[in-house]
């Protein structure tokens, strides 16, 4: 019975091809009385030759029309060599991050080694199911760099590069032209930065700067890209 009703609710979390961030989900209408903070967001992830590079803007918006925060960290380390980028509703995304960090840490203490990217992406798929969140997951394990796109229906899709959030069309446009297999980490960093900057120029719900995460076998480094106007328009 419970399983059937889960299937019924799934329609509400179907992937939309355009502006998936702006949709109204049952989660929001039933559980939140007031307006919900959305990331708006442009996030990107690229597999490079010896790692993964992820990028995000820093704007959080209300209804896509008001900038509720200009300094949001959308990239978070979830594992010794993995990072998640969030788009969608902020509250559920933060819950998802906390739960994923706890699951990855429990796995490491129980198994004595960190999760593989396959195990980590599967776990993220279980946790994100039912949440109005569309994260990207990037990380490195002994099989190399991996990029996954996920959504609230629980889908886990691996790709060599991906974009998410309300700025994804602009970001994808740039990625299609610039993405190549076997980019170096520094080349991939430039591509990711430019993709977020391009989307920040045209998407009203993205902007206020760029955060970049580089993930290699040695670990995760997350930092703001300075020396730019950050698409503050």
């Amino acid at each position: 019975m419970m399983y059937e009703s889960r299937f019924e609710t799934d329609e509400r979390f179907e992937r939309e091809t355009v502006g998936s961030i702006e949709r109204t989900t049952a989660y929001e209408t039933n559980e939140a009385d007031g307006p919900t903070y959305k990331t708006g967001t442009t996030i990107v992830a690229l597999a490079a030759a010896d790692g993964v590079v992820m990028g995000a803007d820093k704007r959080m918006s209300l209804g896509g029309r008001f900038t509720a925060s200009k300094d949001v960290e959308k990239l978070s380390q979830v594992h010794s060599t993995a990072t998640m980028a969030i788009s969608g509703a902020v509250g559920p995304a933060q819950q998802l991050l906390d739960s994923l960090q706890a699951e990855a840490s429990l796995y490491r203490t129980r198994h004595g080694e960190p999760m593989s990217m396959k195990a980590l992406s599967k776990t993220t798929g279980h946790l994100v199911r039912g949440l109005p969140v569309q994260p990207l997951l990037g990380g490195v394990d002994e099989t190399g760099g991996h990029v996954f796109e996920l959504d609230g229906s629980g889908s886990v899709i691996e790709d060599s590069y991906a974009a998410g959030g309300s700025g994804m069309q602009t970001a994808y446009g740039l990625l299609e032209g610039r993405m190549e297999p076997q980019l170096s980490v520094s080349e991939a960093t430039d591509v990711a930065t430019d993709a977020v900057l391009a989307a920040s120029e045209r998407d009203t719900a993205s902007g206020n700067g760029v955060t970049i995460a580089t993930i290699t076998r040695e670990g995760v480094q997350i930092g703001d890209v300075t020396d730019m106007n950050g698409g503050a328009s």
Binding site: D98, S99, A102, S105, L106, R110
Partner: peptide
């Protein structure tokens, strides 16, 4: 050991 692990992770999740 398993109880301790679960408890410690729950605390971290609950209180950060």
């Amino acid at each position: 050991v398993e109880y301790g692990r679960r408890f410690a992770h729950q605390e971290q999740l609950r209180y950060d």
